[in-house]
Amino acid sequence: MFNFTLYKRGMRETFALLLIISAVLAMYFSTIIPMYDPSLESVLNQLASSMPQVMAIMGMGESGSTMAGFLASYLYGLLMLMFPMVFVIISANKLIARHVDKGSMTYLLAAPVKRSTVAFSQMKVIATGVFLIIAFASLLGIALSEALFPGKLEIGAFMLMNAGALSLHLFIAGMCFLCSCLFDESKYAVGFGAGIPLLEFAVQMLANAGGSAEKAKYATFFTLFDASGLIAGEAGAIAGMAALFVGAVLLFFGAIKVFSKKDLHI
């Protein structure tokens, strides 16, 4: 089921990209976290307690005003969606479709190794990469927050939000990996693997703009990742996270099945 040699090779192949994405995230984290202003929190909290209805209408519940809420809106609204996604899109293509396209898959299959083992090992490379990026971001977020604003970050809530981000990116990885297994040519694997999540992301931004476009949120899976909902510990947000995770498992499983059954002109 698992070929360690291939896994190691895959990790090495994606390592440079992993470093770059982590470095970019580190740069943003260390620029944005110091911008948090605890005094603003107390002001907002005072406002919230003095006139709760008004603050609720403005969409600033208590979670939005805490440090975790600050991180949710400034880091997990865009940056933590985009950068891990870049990693996922590029590495998913690299690990299967590119080998098929270039013909080097020949050597992986001209060996007593099952196709499902090849696909599973490569899938683990992506899953490991996604996990490492999110784990790095979580630790960095906690470390920076604790260093600059000791005791301000609700670590449990922050970790739950990161678990949500992990599920989201595993789900995207599942889609990209499925495309990588489905198409024989890199250009289609990347076209669909990148195209679908980016389109969905655009729909999400449209939905965020509010108004009549808000209904668009039902057309994008990004809605299932509700960062502030996770911080508040809402059941709906946790269900969304679980749905993404289950979806990711199904997509990966489907990708491995597709790869095991398809004709390869290599």
């Binding site: 090779r9 013909g103 080097s104 020949t106 299959l109």
Partner: peptide, 29 residues
Amino acid sequence: QKNLGYIPGEMNFFDDMTGAEFLNFIEKY
């Protein structure tokens, strides 16, 4: 495949490896 050796019509390797690294990889794989 366990008992089979294959020379493909076109040689497409993992380009970033040296010949020795590739052969080691195949051996371990």
